[in-house]
Design a protein around this nucleic acid. Sequence first.
RNA 1: CGGGGCGUAGCGUAGCCUGGUAGCGCGCCUGCUUCGGGAGCAGGAGGUCGCCGGUUCAAAUCCGGCCGCCCCGACCA
Length: 567
Amino acid sequence: MQERGPAHGVRPRRPGGGQAAQAGRRAEGTDRGAHRARRPDPERSADQGPGREAAAVGVPPRRGSGTPDLPLLIPGPPGGPTQRGSMADDKALTTRAADFSAWYNEVIARAQLADYSPVRGCMVIRPNGYAIWEQMQQALDRMFKDTGHQNAYFPLFIPQSFLAREAEHVEGFAPETAVVTIGGGKVLEEPLVVRPTSETIIYAMYAKWIQSWRDLPLLINQWANVVRWEMRTRLFLRTTEFLWQEGHTAHATEEEAEAETLMILGIYRRFAEEWMAMPVLTGRKSDGEKFAGALRTYAIEALMQDNKALQAGTSHNLGQNFAKAFDVTFQTADGGLGHVWNTSWGVSTRLVGGLIMTHSDDVGLVCPPRLAQYQVVIVPIYRKDEERVAVIEAAERLQQTLRAANIRVHLDARDGLKPGAKYYEWESKGAPFRLELGPRDLAAEQVMLARRTGGKEPIPMAGIGDRIHVEIDAMQQALLGAAVARREAGTIRGATREQLVEAMNGAGGFVYGGWCGDATCENDIKDQTKATIRVLPDEEFRSDPAPTRCIWCNRDAVTEAVWAKAY
RNA sequence: CGGGGCGUAGCGUAGCCUGGUAGCGCGCCUGCUUCGGGAGCAGGAGGUCGCCGGUUCAAAUCCGGCCGCCCCGACCA
């Protein structure tokens, strides 16, 4: 899948592909059904199906949603016309079990996160989706600033010749760049590439800015859009244009650059876990999967509910490749001249897709409270006019109270919609908490708290700000815990070749095994199973005992690897 | 680029075979009654039937060409 870090560019050398791969694919398609029921549903613990939720609230399950026992992780019937789900006359979404892809698209449409653009492959990020991205930006930006980075902005257009300066880099990106050849009605002397990533333009500038070791390290990040001409696109996961941050640093020594690369990887991991409640594996990419132009690429990898992996962020040690290509030199303390050591790292709006596929259920979006646009939505309940006045007034006071407690809150005071309709709407939009406020609650000085993940109970008005903060922390933890459990259920360690093949033909998931380090095995596995090495896991994630044999060729293993089919 | 499918109101669709008033559901607007889990009634607005051409008294419908979209491949990851 594609790297959405600056990493993005990871451009594996094209393996032979061909007949074997096609045959394998065909086989997978036809006997997929046979593997379906095999695996226990790893989903159960991770998610409150609508049935479960409904039960907790004491309401009969809605039609089409009461099938919590179907295993997920199953793509829909191959080639079937499944995604025509008529959301108009059926209020339930296509279920994850029935068709994960269709479900994903419908969650986005229902929650109004994004819409298709008139330009093929491009996406309009709607306010609800952009709000999540803004929360992500704020959290990440804080972490970057706290570690000494500054923001800057480099231009969208890059002289075409710049891309060519680094051999691997140009090979990786040339096929997917958009190129401007006309400006102001005149054919340009040199075509301009719309940046697919900014290494070249940035290091060209660094060459001007860096003279002495005293100018190092240079730690810059930019928030920007980039364009990659993808053939097949999916909302948030892979679009022609997307938003991201790309950090670019220059250091005096290789050790410093490596430390920076790993430090950022740690930030990405922390962000994924603490803010997105999305557990990730960290590790290094194989040479075949690394960024075009990097020495080493590290990544965070998450497992989605359909048991496919998502590369959620990448951090590269670029060595001196770009420094040499762009002549970024500096005078050392002892008077010598050296090339700087660079890193680059990024995460993109793809994270929003990861968020959706990690937590959401058959009712719609589930958003961890720390990233939710509205952590709390207040729904007023009333019949008569007098009640309305009193309830709305109390709801506004409640809103002020929560705001004062630093909670993002929205009062849904729309008239003409019954409360139930609002409940469903905010559930599909992923609001973590709903506070229902009616005459009975006013009398009792309480409010009904309903959690998006299930459960509803009255809580006292007094001290409600503190209570909500406790609830936010609890839900954040619960979502992470459930996602970890789901990932573990979808993981096989110490797998044999047969287990790898079987897993990739069926349920998917992370498969750990030994690897001889030979690209031939890597490519054969990819051709025959569609699985790629997601990471060579960091120590914390490695198996004990370590595998000693290559999962494919049975020669001595030089490392452990994690395979999965990826987005 | 190859194989398959589809273009009719914002969304989902019927009508096409057998040419003759463009219909339904959801959504939207107005009003009244409603409101503790997807409200009801009444009245409304909204359509170059993808585009161009042909046949015909008459084309959403038949014929030809083109365009676009989706799926499976290829490509990419």
